[in-house]
Amino acid sequence: MTTQPIVREFEADLTVVAAVEAATDVVALTLAAEDGAALPPWTPGAHIDLVLGEDLVRQYSLCGNPADTRQYRVGVLRAPDSRGGSKAVHAELREGATVRVRGPRNHFPMVASPRYLFIAGGIGITPMLPMIAEAEASGADWRLVYGGRSRASMAFVDELAAYGDKVTLLPQDEAGFPDLDGLLGEAAPDTLVYTCGPTGLLDAVEDRCAASWPAGSLHLERFSAKAPASDEEDSAFELVLQRSGLTLQVPADQSIYEVCKAAGVSVVGSCLEGVCGTCETEVIDGDVDHRDSILNDEEKESNEFMMICVSRCRGDQLTLDL
């Protein structure tokens, strides 16, 4: 008898030790283990899942200090078009409440660089806070452009005040949209661009970086799935799991992730829409049809990894390191 390994992410019930209004419709939650035990370490750009109910799992960037191993902090915007996640956080996660936390994981890691340009839109400021603290500590030359609907809606402005004129605040009702052409029209030398925020902003930043910046300069994180680039029809293919020694059939109407689960192969997944990166899997052979919102073009072309919750295979057979 062979037994398949079971893989999962760290999970724990954490206590809300503080719930503070960080801006209009934004709550900053500080989470800790009830017994004060150390939490798993993380690096800037990391996020955790809050498990808010069955089928209600949402990702939030960690925005505290990674050196504080006893606490996590997240900032949550009450989204008007919320599918229930942020509404549940605002309604239920008061001080003293308990919430199931999974992770942390990081698909927006901060790469060392002498210069950074951070562009944040709205609640997209959260992953930037620890990045900025690190950039500042290392003596890097950095700048943050932070846009929001109005000054009152922009969270953590008080914490950013300490950085002086390295931070440009752009409340839309006072200052309009960020001048992306001015910021990104020409590639700056030795500079990495980090951006997080609403889809419109990210698409605009992506377009400008693609036009004039060296490959690999742009790092972005999306909150929701990118509009699908391919309208290819889903087709069936054969899936070879090399380590498990299994060959499975993936029908047109099922994902690789679903087929693995059904076959009893332990795989990890969280958002199941190509956003969180939990199900990233190493590709051994086959032509991957990437449909996630995490990998950049270079990474997609390398054909080394794929998100098995949404991505598929263009040919007849795909071999994965599972």
Binding site: M1, T3, V7, R8, E9, F10, W42, R105
Partner: peptide, 16 residues
């Protein structure tokens, strides 16, 4: 004997 199932728990930077 035969090894029972391996259970792996991941975080960003650790593996248990």
């Amino acid at each position: 004997g035969v090894a029972p199932a391996l259970e792996v728990e991941l975080t960003e930077t650790t593996v248990h």
